[in-house]
């Protein structure tokens, strides 16, 4: 992973009439990283992804891919991008192999028959390559979608909600494939999701978008570190618990209190110390829930949206 930007988005906006699907979005994706675009349904992820592939024309803003402005170098840039948008759809009456040959041929990059077979092997579809796509399960189509996205050896792979509709086994396999693309083949991958844990498990950097705007952007390691937890203590005697905390070194860490619940901003180590403090103050601890601050924040915007 280098700091060389593969993608730079500045002030990107897309308005459908009075609806602002994307509203001044800024992003920065470095070469060789997996970048997670996180947001609840309707946050503007898909619209953003479609704009990156010139499926949707932005109302305003600038998209630079591989250092060039997308719309003035569209064909050159697109030849080095592989993508799955929304769900992997193919010509159902054609075989997987013919579908792959068709899209490979349209990539404007030389793709040998051998490469097509290897790609089908890579995604685990070699045995059923000759079958018509209409006989495929969703998981198989998703794998074929991935094969289609990588068959022409693109530098950038854009995957929109790639784990949608997959069973747990399929999700794990997909995750491994994506990691392989990054780790072994040096590809840059941008993926969108509405599931934080999915991004956390795979991405190097991430951005949360909400109402078409970038809310948070940064490295996953930093954004989701254990240094920044929100811990909720459910106690039998809240008044006693509050006075115990206020008279300790954790006085400044108390964020909120209602009913029998106290919310403190702590790290992992301090959480154990607060538990001991509360127990010593004669409180019964009914429940302790610890969440990372970003997770808490994401949950809030997600629940607000739903």
């Amino acid at each position: 992973m280098t700091d060389l930007p593969v993608l730079k988005i500045k002030g990107l906006a897309k308005h459908f009439g009075h609806i602002k699907a994307v509203d001044g979005l800024n992003l920065h994706v470095s070469k060789g990283e997996i970048f997670g675009l996180l947001g609840h349904n309707g946050a503007g992820k898909s619209t953003t992804m479609r704009m990156l592939l010139s499926l949707i024309k932005p109302t305003s803003g600038r998209i630079e891919v591989f250092g060039s402005e997308l719309y003035s170098n569209r064909e050159k840039i697109l030849s080095d991008i592989g993508s799955i948008i929304e769900k992997p759809d193919f010509y159902p009456w054609l075989s997987a192999k013919t579908n792959l040959e068709l899209f490979a041929a349209l990539s404007r990059k030389p793709v040998s028959k051998n490469r097509i077979s290897q790609t089908l092997e890579f995604v685990g579809l070699a045995a059923r390559a000759g079958d018509k796509v209409k006989t495929y399960s969703h998981g198989m189509k998703q794998r074929l979608g991935l094969a289609q996205a990588i068959v022409h050896d693109p530098a950038l792979i854009i995957l929109d909600e790639p784990s949608n509709g997959l069973d747990p086994k399929g999700i794990i396999e997909l995750r491994e494939l994506i990691l392989h693309l990054k780790n072994d083949l040096g590809k840059t991958v941008i993926l969108s999701s509405h599931i934080l844990s999915e991004v956390e498990l795979i991405a190097d950097s991430m951005a949360i978008i909400h109402n078409g705007r970038t809310i948070i952007e940064g490295s996953v390691a930093k954004l989701l570190s254990d240094e920044n937890l929100l811990v909720r203590f459910f106690v039998s005697n809240p008044a006693k618990a509050k006075s115990a905390i206020e008279s300790s070194v954790f006085a400044g860490k108390l964020i909120e209190m209602h009913n029998n619940e106290l919310i403190l901003e702590l790290n992992n180590q301090d959480t154990s110390r607060v538990i001991r403090l509360l127990l010593d103050s004669g409180n019964d601890l009914q429940q302790v829930i610890s969440r990372r601050r970003l997770e808490e924040y994401f949950l809030k915007i997600t629940s607000a949206a739903s």
Binding site: E75, I81, D89, F90, F103, S107
Partner: peptide, 14 residues
Amino acid sequence: AQGTLRLLLTKPYT
């Protein structure tokens, strides 16, 4: 309708 248009239009052709 079948979803292949978006795939086709991401290919490097105008």
